[in-house]
Amino acid sequence: MANQVTPGVVANTLVRYILTQAGLAAGGLTAKGSNNQWQTTLAAFGNKCAYTGADLTGAPIEKEHAIAMNRAGGGLHVYGNVIPATPKANAEKSGLRYDAFLRSKGEKFSSIAHLTDKDREDAIGRIEEFMRNARPDGMLDPHPELLAFYKAQYEKAKELCATAAQELEVLLQKLNVADVPNPDETDDAMPDLPSTEQFELEERNTDNLPEAYRKIQECGSEMKVGAYARAVFEQLFADGRIAAFLPNLTYREDSFYAFRLSFPALITQRHLDPLRYYATPYKHDGTDYYLCSQWFERNRDDLDSWLMETVFGHSA
């Protein structure tokens, strides 16, 4: 999904720009010349992964943000917040804070499974000591007003995309147009900037969903959007959460507002429009509901937003 031009991707791009600007304003991170803060950081951790303790000599090293660089964490790419990690630990940490990650257990966190509880708390202590020494001014703690600002800009960008998409839909219908698919530094003081891949990694899972839905989302990027929608709705019917939304999802206007679908998301009589609905029904209270089959990639992010913000009320 990271490469798809969706409202969420556009909004995340704006947040990435804002966080990068905030990091530069806060001093950034230098990685070249005599003022080499990255080498100082590596030395502070003994050239070892800040989380796993693995020796990084001659091994791939990720520049990991202790406080995640996303709209929920508000972490910046600055000296003190950027620490060394193995690629595996970096991937497993994703958008978690350093302390939450180090206290996490289970199959999803195999890179730190070997650590004892004392090892985990010691690692947290080392990271926090490094952060205090690097930035005694307290700049590493995101200010509540800044976090509110990041969230507000994210929502504005998504709203702008949604408004433009709705206006486009109306125009396409007016014109009777068919559905179409969505469209080296030498300065010693040059700041080190966060990679797009790192930001996108930390932006994942900033909205907490139940495990079943997280698993569906994790596999979602490998599915066609129709299969993804079916998987989401199958789970919603299976656990009964769909009940509260059935009155809205059977209306075209509400379905367009939620997903930008041109037809109701669900109907109870497929024979009236068999070409636009999947044949396998979902059951609720003895009634068969058929899911609209007219999903396009432009609808994927809307489905995710509806799931996280409407169904579960998480808008990180």
Rank of each mutant, 00 (worst) to 15 (best):
E121G: 05
E128N: 10
D192A: 13
P84A: 09
I127T: 06
E92A: 00
R16E: 05
D285T: 00
V78A: 14
H284K: 03
D254A: 11
S221V: 09
L171Y: 13
R214V: 13
R135A: 03
E218W: 12
A50M: 08
I67D: 08
I112G: 01
A238K: 15
L19I: 03
R97H: 07
A31G: 13
Q21A: 13
V5H: 15
P281R: 00
M131R: 14
L291F: 08
E200M: 13
A189H: 08
G125W: 06
S195A: 05
L14T: 12
I127H: 06
R300T: 08
G226K: 07
T57D: 04
Y257L: 12
A66S: 05
P247W: 07
L175A: 13
G226P: 01
M139H: 09
G74V: 03
K283A: 10
I216K: 11
V232F: 08
P247L: 03
T13W: 14
L291R: 11
L307S: 09
F256K: 14
F101G: 01
T310W: 01
G53W: 00
P194G: 08
D254M: 14
S110Y: 08
L14H: 09
Y277M: 02
A54V: 01
F109N: 01
K32E: 09
H65V: 02
W306H: 01
E185S: 07
W306Q: 04
S195H: 11
T163I: 10
L209I: 07
L96K: 01
D179L: 11
A265V: 09
T268W: 08
K32F: 12
L303M: 14
V82W: 14
D301R: 01
L146Q: 12
V5C: 09
L201Y: 07
N205V: 04
V232A: 11
D141Y: 10
L96T: 03
T163C: 08
S315T: 03
V177F: 13
E155D: 15
A66H: 04
Y213P: 07
S110H: 10
T20V: 06
